[in-house]
Amino acid sequence: QETVRWGIPMSFGSNLTALGDTMPWVSEQLKKVSGGTVNLQVFEPGKLVPALAIFDSVSTGKVEAGYSWMGYEIGKVPVSALFGAVPFGMESPQFAAWMYFGGGDALLKEAYKPYNVYPIFCGSISPEAAGWFRKEINTPEDIKGLKFRAAGLGGKIYQKLGASVTMLPGGELFQALEKGVLDGTEFSLPTVDEQLGFFKVAKNYYMPGWHQPSTNQFLYVNTAAWAKLKPQTQAQIETTCTAGVTMAIAKAEALQGAVLAKFEKEGVKARQFNKTMLDAFSKASKEVLAEEAGKDPMFKKVLDSMNGFQKQNAQWHNLGYLPRDYPH
């Protein structure tokens, strides 16, 4: 057993449930299974390198590895957005199915090879909420001119529907929403949204998380650093990350019910977008995804693979499970 000590910058604070505390868990487990010799020491966002610079730092070898949502590097590697979250895409179990058994992992490694990055699937969480709105949203008309904060592909889709999209930094969101600088914002899971306090100032909480049916995190490892590891250590890291995926799915799923109940007590109306809205979002999503696929061949390749897998599994997905609203 070799001795390894890496500093692992994260893009989420470890206080954010499921999103940020998976890697610290993985790191603890690694220490245990290796008898204390493999130490991937996690660092809170910004402490080592900035939260959004993890891809860059791993790619250039400034750190051996880092833990991040895949998609922050959309400006450099457009396909990253697909691995992080796809509007109307796959839910966590299905995404894991595609990654491990549908060719996803191989595509991922191929896409990141030119950048000297070896990404390991290491966490996936339940759908995000669609967002907090100051008023009810019933028709696509309600989106027109809406001042909304959204990131990534979701932002482009809202723009298509006529919203005026901004990218206000996390720290300014609460006040902007309170004062009406914004009419709405999406952020993350209900448990994470709770920590930011949005329920105090916006009372319409919309679901489902059509823009992010699953949100996936990866351990980015520098290719050279990875190659230097013994096979035993490599296996230990990959296995604990696979376990991390399970833990993240379980934890994210476990905690949301209680939070929604708390929101209700605070006077928040938890709702679901109606069919008209979802159709409008879906149509705009298809357009945005097609545009992106037209710009980047790798994006198209991965999108086709995902769509193919989803299509092939569609009948099973629709028939195999109890309908979501079937009484328990």
Partner: peptide
């Protein structure tokens, strides 16, 4: 020396400068 083992590691400061540059607040 813990994590500080090469100049490449030190160059992480550039990303930290970049974060100051893009800090809208």
């Amino acid at each position: 020396t813990f994590l500080l083992t090469s100049w490449v590691k030190f160059s992480g400061i550039i990303d930290r400068f970049d974060a100051i540059m893009s800090n809208w607040v």
